[in-house]
């Protein structure tokens, strides 16, 4: 059974699992919107933390051009009309090996491609913020 006590101004409730299994009578307002990379309008959210420093770094403009071209591309396959934008982005990135170059000693394919890492881990782009706590949250939520 749940129990309750008062210590000065502080109230303490020990709630049993059974008690908390009864649905809450409280209705909360809708959650705060949490915009991802693509807004509901279909536009790109360049301030999405999931992009890390990509849109803000030294090749940010080139990245944005390439990504926009792809995003709005109606070609088949999508993005096949973006050759020039991709090339420009790649040329920029080649000037910043410390930023954009990845491991060259990689066992995987495409070892020379600086963006390969993204293709492999793009699902992690969702992570809006990644402080230690989130990772603990991640652990905790894993089981649920």
């Amino acid at each position: 059974m749940s129990s309750c006590k008062q210590v000065g101004k502080d109230k303490i409730i020990f709630a049993t699992k059974e008690d908390h299994e009864v649905p809450s009578s409280v209705q909360l307002p809708d959650a705060e919107p949490s915009p991802g990379l693509i807004l509901s309008t279909g536009e790109i959210n360049w301030n999405c933390p999931c992009l890390g420093g990509m849109a803000t770094g030294p090749c940010g403009v080139q990245f944005r051009d390439a990504f926009s071209c792809f995003h709005y591309s109606e070609a088949e396959p999508k993005g096949s009309d973006c050759y020039d934008a991709f090339k420009t982005m790649q040329e920029c990135m080649s000037k910043y090996p410390a930023l954009y170059n990845k491991d060259n000693n990689d066992d995987d394919d495409d070892k020379d491609d600086p963006l390969e890492a993204l293709a492999n881990s793009s699902d992690s782009l969702n992570e809006t913020e990644q402080k230690p706590i989130e990772h603990r949250e991640a652990i905790a939520s894993k089981g649920s």
Partner: peptide, 20 residues
């Protein structure tokens, strides 16, 4: 995690697009 994680840049904001 997403709902609980406000969309801000943080510390941790990993930059998966860039090479590690």
């Amino acid at each position: 995690i997403r709902p609980s994680t406000p969309p801000h840049v943080i510390a941790g904001t990993c930059k998966p697009i860039m090479s590690p």
